[in-house]
Design a protein around this nucleic acid. Structure first.
Lengths: 144, 144
DNA sequence: GCTTGCCTTGAAGTGTACATGAAGGTTTAA
DNA sequence: TTAAACCTTCATGTACACTTCAAGGCAAGC
């Protein structure tokens, strides 16, 4: 398959595929007699792996480090494991930060919702907010 | 508090705080008589809000859109809700992508682990992998 | 034989989110 | 009073991850 088809199949632009090859995130791609890239399913899978890890926030640099180890023939199992675990820790922290932010936004949404539904409770609400304002220390007032 | 203290308190560089102010991600900061920024807890909270949303992947641009709506005096509740929900969807998708990548890496780690522990099972392992190789269609072989 | 549409390479350009540097003002401590 | 340790603005620089451009090759169809 040519690069355009591979691009359509993976959702990664032709230019990005060339870039990934140049940066060794994917193996050197076979060429047709005239020099065009001839992309097979092995490459497609590796493009998808790159896409997934990129989406998860792994940098090009770290990806290359990992893939270099993986492609080397020596037994790098320990280094690979260490690298994976390192990356895993980064990603889990990211996920947790993300979850915290999601929780924050959900809380705010609920708050908005209350506000919109509770017209008849407005005074009570205002009173509560005033009580909060006078009592609060570090509890994210004014919605932030 | 001056900008350096605020920077230490939030972990955001002085330059970044100035940048956030210029980009209206945080309100205009009060100045001392000589023109230095005088940062109070309200600003600190808003810097932290920015930090959290940035860590969650919200762009400067989207953050500004949201904050503009929030700071405007008209009733933007609906737009705010919509914007929050939009962002929430983006973040949940990110979280899920991240989780998928974490699962992928965990799987690989387990695989490495098996490989290291299971020297006596090597042949069985190889046989299994061969069976996989002949049967697989799109299941990420060769570790990717 | 010329247009269309794919491909190639290498170099240069783009957008985001800051970081850094220059040039200078003010306060504090020795 | 002079040095340090802050601060200011404005301009330029940097890193990352591509994207776009320029110049050209090859193959098919009209």
């Amino acid at each position: 398959m040519n690069i355009k088809e591979a691009s359509e199949k993976t959702g990664v632009s032709s230019a990005a595929i060339r870039y990934y090859e140049k940066e060794s995130l994917i193996p050197a791609i076979d060429r047709t007699p005239v020099g065009n890239r001839d992309i097979d399913d092995r490459i497609i899978r590796r493009i998808r792996f790159v896409t997934q890890m990129r989406a998860a926030g792994m940098s090009i640099e770290n990806l290359r480090r990992y893939i270099e180890l993986f492609d080397a023939q020596e037994d790098n199992t320990k280094e690979q494991k260490a690298l994976l675990q390192e990356q895993l820790a980064v990603m889990e922290e990211k996920r947790d930060d993300l979850q915290a932010a999601i929780d924050h936004l959900n809380y705010k949404l609920k708050h908005f919702y209350d506000h919109m539904e509770a017209t008849e409770e407005e005074l009570r609400q205002l009173e509560k907010e005033h009580a909060n304002r006078t009592a609060q220390k570090d509890e994210t007032p004014e919605g932030f």
